[in-house]
Write a protein that binds this DNA or RNA. Structure first.
Length: 321
DNA sequence: ACATTGCGAGCATTTACCAC
DNA sequence: GTGGTAAATGCTCGCAATGT
């Protein structure tokens, strides 16, 4: 992975260009004025923030390495990799930049200020709220013109929309508009699924689970999951089959039931079930299986035209996460 | 405006211990 | 010896305050 170094201000670029050509001739490092340093750190800090508010050490390394690669005159001959100093500066810069943004009311940062934390959690490194892996829209701001009160009012209205027939479109629109308040609720209060289900029943419909995942991760949940499952099927089966004892017998039974079938849905179900058995869990706890006679019409992977089962993932109601 | 420090949380790794 | 778990340890992290 390589970080794209942005263009700096005109005068910085001029000096860097000059420094680079001198470096090529004499390997001489550019004497970096505080103005240039400031410009470089500012631009890089902003660009890093586009990816992450809380980058890891390795991320700073990647950026620092890209910087000295792009501008060799910034190389630090004293350090083991030529850019350790830049990595440290970027770390400081990012910390100070977060403070700055927080003071300007950036929600995803002010949520971690000591004042915003509960008194029992008022320590800098305690319960820092930051995106989990691949969460792109972890703590969005409210839509322009909306407040906590207005969105809460809308949430209550949404409750009455859920029971109405053929109302998916309306619900989808409203759920999308209330994404920010829902996220803040999840992050701030960490509610149990039961509580959250009571407050946001529409979210637990299949299409809304997919939509929410798309909003949060910018990835299509089901297609992506199924595609990856297909990619790893043979490897997974090898691992599962290698296990002995009672698990072997159970997984062999599941395999036998589907062995003759070419329906891709059944295959996927089979793989997931054997995997769950392999991990020592009960497949019935996660997967509900049912026969449907008229589903997936027109999907490319349908092979069996009579009856086929589909595997649906259901959120367990009584688990906290 | 950048750099440093202090503090305690929390994660990962190592070590110690126990039951089988 | 193996597998599992608990305790100990070392290290990194982030905010806030402070230094330069």
């Amino acid at each position: 992975m390589e970080f794209q170094i942005p263009r700096f201000s005109y005068d910085t670029e001029l000096q860097l260009e000059k420094g680079n050509s001198e470096y090529q001739i004499s390997q001489k490092m550019l004497n970096v004025s505080s103005q240039i340093k400031s410009d470089i750190l500012n631009r890089l800090g902003e660009d890093i923030y586009q990816y992450k508010a809380y980058p890891e050490d390795a991320h700073f390394c990647i950026v620092a390495e890209a910087l000295v690669k792009r501008h060799p005159c910034l190389k630090e001959p004293g350090s083991f990799n030529g850019c350790y100093g830049w990595k440290q500066r970027l770390k400081y810069k990012m910390g100070n930049y977060r403070t700055q943004l927080k003071l300007q009311g950036c929600p995803e940062l002010s949520v971690n200020s000591l004042k915003s934390k509960a008194t029992t959690d008022a320590f800098p490194a305690k319960k820092v709220k930051r995106p989990k892996r691949a969460e792109a829209n972890f703590y969005p701001s409210f839509p322009v013109g909306e407040t906590l009160e207005s969105l809460e009012k809308e949430r209550l209205k949404l409750l009455s929309e859920v029971g109405i027939r053929n109302n998916e479109r309306v619900i989808a629109d409203k759920m999308a508009r209330r994404f920010a308040i829902r996220r803040q609720e999840v992050v701030n209060q960490e509610p149990s699924i039961k509580v959250f289900q009571d407050r946001w029943p529409a979210l637990f419909q299949q299409n809304e689970i997919n939509a929410e995942f798309q909003r949060l991760m910018t990835v299509s949940l089901e297609p992506k999951f199924m595609a990856q499952l297909d990619v790893y099927t043979s490897q997974l089966m090898r691992v599962v089959c290698a296990k002995g004892g009672a698990t072997h017998q159970k997984t062999a039974d599941i395999m036998a039931a589907f062995d003759q079938n070419e329906n891709i849905h059944l295959w996927r179900e089979c793989v997931l079930k054997t995997l769950i058995v392999y991990l020592g869990e009960d497949p019935d706890d996660l997967i509900k299986e049912y026969l449907v006679s008229n589903m997936h019409v027109g999907t490319s992977c349908q092979r069996d035209t009579e009856t086929f089962s589909d595997t649906r993932f259901l959120c367990c109601n009584n688990h906290n996460s």
